[in-house]
């Protein structure tokens, strides 16, 4: 039995007259402790797919199953790490993790809890920043905090929604290695959405392409047979890696070509996703 499964899932937005079908007939089977990477273009419904997996939204058709039972809603066992971190800005690093731990492990004693939180802070290399607020952290540190909070909930599935796309390339490389290290220490099922083929090939066991929207589906997946641990430096000279990477890249670009040919020059409506920046919020005028 598959651990996590999507069966003929479809999802659309908007009123019946102007329906926009984001995902159509998605089928995905994930085994336990498998690291799956989903690659897609921007606007192809990646975040919608993640929300469906996390239980934050319900599919219009089809089922999302965890261990054979349908997912009814979000919960700590579906540990989603949001693209814009979703950290609570009025709480410090330790308090952000604490709120998750208190909720999931309500019966944990206070001293045990503080040790537990400290363990996860050390795990993501944030030692020394326990009392800083998220606004005082860099992008990479915020990402680590988000990861620590998600891991502290001990989820069954780790859902990473473009975790590293907001970072610079150097920090990205560091965090990719950290993610793989943490995953290897403490294996669990991971579904990661990314737009970087190299990243997917470096980290995942399986790469699944998502066709461009609307009505995106999952294409045929690529198995990654490279042995772990994978070294970024030497991987570039590995023929298997090069073949894999080229194959995936060609497939993604061909999908884009196909979709362009199919639709011609029709106007493509953009999905209603606003890029959210933690440093700015829409200022509502204070009404006197």
């Amino acid at each position: 039995m598959a651990f996590l499964e999507l069966k003929q899932v479809s999802k659309g937005f908007g009123p019946a007259s102007k329906r926009y079908e984001v995902l159509s007939d998605i089928n995905l089977t994930i085994a336990e402790n498998e690291f799956v990477a989903i690659i897609g273009f921007s606007g192809s419904g990646k975040s919608t797919l993640m929300s469906l997996l996390a239980g934050l939204e319900k599919p219009d058709a089809g089922e999302v199953l965890l261990r054979g039972k349908p997912i009814t809603g979000p919960g700590p066992e579906l540990g989603i790490m949001f693209q814009n971190y979703s950290l609570l800005p009025w709480l410090s690093v330790a308090q952000n993790i604490e709120i998750a731990v208190k909720q999931v492990f309500a019966t944990m004693a206070k001293s045990e809890r503080s040790d537990y939180i400290q363990h996860y802070i050390d795990l993501v290399s944030l030692t020394g920043s326990e009392w800083k607020k998220p606004s005082e952290l860099s992008g990479g540190m915020r990402q680590r905090l988000s990861l620590a909070r998600t891991l502290a909930m001990k989820p069954e599935v780790l859902l990473l929604d473009e975790p590293l796309s907001a970072l610079d390339a150097l920090t990205r490389a560091v965090l990719q290695d950290e993610l793989v290290r943490i995953w290897e220490e403490d294996r669990r099922t991971v579904v990661m959405i990314t737009n970087d083929v190299d990243e997917a090939a470096l980290m995942a066991d399986r790469i699944v392409p998502l066709t461009p929207g609307p009505r995106a589906t999952l294409g045929e997946d690529f198995a990654v047979s490279l042995l772990r641990p994978r070294d970024r430096a030497t991987l570039n000279f590995n023929d298997d890696f090069k073949r894999l990477r080229n194959g995936v890249a060609k497939r993604m670009l061909s999908l884009n070509e196909e979709s362009r040919l199919v639709k011609g020059t029709t106007v493509r409506p953009l999905p209603a996703i606003d890029p959210i920046d933690l440093d700015r919020r829409v200022v509502a005028s204070t009404v006197a």
Partner: peptide, 19 residues
């Protein structure tokens, strides 16, 4: 206004944690 305009991300955190 303040209560109505809580960031959707924070509400998602509350949903995931099942508060």
């Amino acid at each position: 206004l303040g209560v109505a305009s809580v960031d959707k991300d924070h509400i998602n955190v509350a949903r995931v944690l099942r508060l």
